[in-house]
Design a protein around this nucleic acid. Structure first.
Lengths: 230, 230
DNA sequence: GCTGAATCGAGAACAGTGCTCTCCCAAGAT
DNA sequence: ATCTTGGGAGAGCACTGTTCTCGATTCAGC
């Protein structure tokens, strides 16, 4: 993303982010369902067809918002983890940062972790940003392993060969030298984390542990112990 | 839901389910986003305005589908749990039944556990059906407690007063006499369960543990031990 | 600096959508 | 047999995403 040379290129870049900003603004008001291209164009003082010079379809605009949302969430998680604190505290703050971001941007969160609305998206552009937040958490695991802040891993006896191979790929990519059973438990903790946040945001906790602050904190601590952080 | 006396009442009841059936059929093809009242009416040989005699709005039709989906998922879970097997096997089969139903009806699943599309729904009619599947799982926990199939509960030391009270309400409603720490761990396991299924259905596992069969089974076993079933 | 080419916004148009309103016929109740 | 109600048909409104054409503006090569 180098500096745009010509005036036209600069205008294009600025309008592209202006469109996304306005779309994001409407997203927070009406949700993905009510996001209207025409309304976005109207608010920007242009006509709807002009918008197609920047995004080939509504779904492409949504995909751009999805990528931005992944990156924003990932950045929030990385910011929370990148401190001079022990692995436990890194994991804890990372989890809470994810929840805080989700509560601050519920519609963007459900854009990325809710129902896949736009047809079925082309994953290639989204998978790298999608990995940032989980990778940040796993980073805490790596520092835990490097500093001796992890309990010894559970047995690998009950892990099937296929799962062991899948996990080995993950280990190679994100957490070299961390044992497979621990990475698998971290993956379980991650699904628990996002499951809880989704439940909270979708109102699935109403009538039970709502508000969910206490439960969330408790779950983080329990799962932290589960993965071996102490 | 007694037998309709008049011919008109019977016709109305039949048409109501016919509308829902056709809507469900379209749901499996296009997802909630592409569900069109007019298309449903067209397929049923009527005009769109006639449909409003049965459902006051598109969102109300979706809400009806949501309730049906909760009930179908709940029934599947109850069927899996209601066997003469030990608590472990009940829990295991219940979890797999939920996943199997979700994979067989992905759009209905993401209708209930994905982004809340219809404005914000009126929960009152949905919370009772929504509780069936979780209640079935917790039922396995109860038989486990009654038959001595549960390990002793972990300490309650790190549970805040507010969370303890919230959990106590849950205990009273769904699992009288099961200790609070165990119910809390069960709730954690439930969020993990639904989180994993949502991840799998939304393609969040692509490039990691996809296909997710092995990981799902592994996670169920790990969480089963986590809640104290042995 | 001029010219041909690429870019971009405006406007109209098409095929859809959810929803409302009126009209009218048939079924039910009295 | 009358009256009230329920329900379907149709037109219409205000939207939507998307495509097309048509000028105007900007850029790049000479």
């Amino acid at each position: 993303m180098s500096a745009p040379r010509t005036a036209r290129a600069r205008a294009r870049a600025e309008l592209t982010v202006a469109i996304k900003d306005e779309a994001r603004r409407q997203l927070t008001e009406t949700g993905a369902h009510g996001l209207s291209l025409r309304a976005v164009a109207r608010e920007l003082g242009m006509v709807s067809s002009a918008l197609y010079r920047y995004f080939p379809s509504r779904d492409e605009l949504l995909t751009a918002l999805i990528i931005d949302a992944y990156n924003a969430l990932g950045a929030a998680a990385e910011r929370a983890v990148a401190r001079e604190i022990d692995a436990c505290e890194q994991w804890r703050r990372g989890c809470h940062a994810v929840r805080d971001w989700a509560r601050a941007h519920p519609h963007e969160y459900s854009l990325i972790y809710g129902s896949p609305i736009p047809g079925y998206r082309a994953p290639q552009d989204t998978i790298a940003p999608a990995g940032r937040a989980p990778a940040a958490l796993v980073g805490a695991l790596r520092t835990g392993w490097a500093t001796g802040g992890l309990r010894p891993p559970p047995s690998t006896a009950h892990i099937s060969d296929e799962l062991r191979e899948q996990a080995a790929v993950l280990v190679r990519l994100f957490a070299p030298e961390v044992p497979v059973p621990i990475v698998l438990r971290a993956l379980i903790a991650l699904t628990q984390l996002f499951g809880t946040i989704s439940f909270e945001l979708n109102g699935q906790f109403v009538g039970t542990v709502d508000p969910a602050d206490e439960f969330f904190g408790h779950a983080v601590e329990e799962m932290m112990f589960f993965v071996g952080l102490r």
